[in-house]
């Protein structure tokens, strides 16, 4: 499979963290592996992510499951560096992502696209401009400030929209679209970033089953055809089983399960979703169309 082209900036990055033997590291964007080492994030006394160790090779589609408050969102936000880790390391190749600053940090964010539960589009901008914001990291300052994009960039954005079946809305305001449409636009924005990794934080939690399926199919398509690593937080177990190569279960900030979907037994799932789910069954965690009673589909921790 052909890999997308990536820039190798090779810019030395200061590493001021104590305990590191050498003060400069070379970022290796050609790395093949995202590696978390004892990654920890505390909010006051609460440990949202507790010493997470993970290795995610390029091109995997990973689903993270767990109850609300299990630390799934925090983990994803740590990867994108929307929040800073309290402890531990995020390694991409040899590069210590947790230590990135300024321009290098922004470059990492642009390589590590993120989509959100609430889409986080700019409602009052039109759809194509929203998608074009995915190009901001590559733009000279004056063009970014004046919102001037080249025809090539615009065509690229429209291609990305077209791939999600949203090209016809290009000139509408983002806030006029339905939730499912907005999430597709958000995925197009992520694609416009030409990312290496795509993080999805509860991408379907605010959507109806029909749109959830469209969005999840799109994520799988991006993973399969573009070779982009997809790491996806999911409330629902059956969606994770259906779409992901690998499932990670989180409970109270810890990673309690890591394996292929067929290794995830009902007992294991019950543990991840909490002991109170005595009458636990997978359909109860479903939002997918294939569930037996879609009308009564409930999210287990909603």
């Amino acid at each position: 499979m052909q890999r997308p082209r990536f820039v190798v900036p090779g810019r030395p990055v200061a590493d001021h963290r104590p305990g590191t033997a050498h003060s400069y590291k070379r970022i290796m964007w050609g790395a093949e592996m995202l590696k978390l080492e004892k990654l920890t994030r505390r909010f006051g006394d609460n440990i949202a992510v507790n010493a997470a160790n993970l290795e995610i090779p390029d091109g995997q589609m990973v689903g993270i499951i767990g109850k609300s408050g299990a630390g799934k969102s925090t983990l994803l936000r740590l990867l994108n560096r929307l929040i800073d880790p309290s402890d531990g390391q995020i390694l991409f190749g040899d590069a210590d992502i947790a230590a990135l600053k300024g321009n290098d940090l922004r470059k990492w964010r642009s390589d590590c696209a993120m989509i959100f539960q609430q889409f986080n589009l700019v409602g009052r901008l039109d759809v194509v401009t929203n998608v074009l914001t995915g190009r901001l990291h590559d733009l000279p300052t004056w063009r970014a400030m004046a919102q001037i994009f080249t025809p090539r960039e615009r065509a690229f954005a429209i291609q990305a929209l077209d791939r999600l079946g949203m090209a016809h809305t290009a000139t509408q305001r983002a806030e006029t679209l339905s939730g499912g449409q907005q999430q597709r636009v958000a995925i197009a924005r992520a694609l416009a970033q030409e990312p290496r990794i795509l993080l999805a934080d509860e991408p379907i939690a605010s959507l109806d089953p029909m749109n959830a399926k469209i969005v999840m199919d799109a994520l799988r398509d991006i993973n399969r055809n573009d070779g982009i690593t997809v790491i996806c937080n999911l409330h629902t177990l059956d969606t994770a089983r259906q779409y992901c190569d690998r499932i990670i279960g989180m409970l109270d900030g810890r990673i309690v399960f890591d394996g292929t979907p067929d290794l995830l037994t009902t007992d294991m799932a019950r543990e991840i979703y909490g002991a109170d789910a005595g009458d636990f069954n997978e359909a109860a965690t479903s939002t997918a169309l294939s569930a037996t009673k879609p009308a009564r589909a409930v999210r287990v921790s909603a």
Partner: peptide, 27 residues
């Protein structure tokens, strides 16, 4: 559609996009 990259956008692609969504381009 296969792998998306800005550098892979040809002039023909631009023309096609312009034709399908003329208002999305600056005039």
């Amino acid at each position: 559609m296969s792998i998306a990259a800005l550098s892979g956008v040809t002039d023909a692609d631009i023309a096609a996009a312009r034709q399908s969504q003329p208002d999305a381009f600056t005039t």
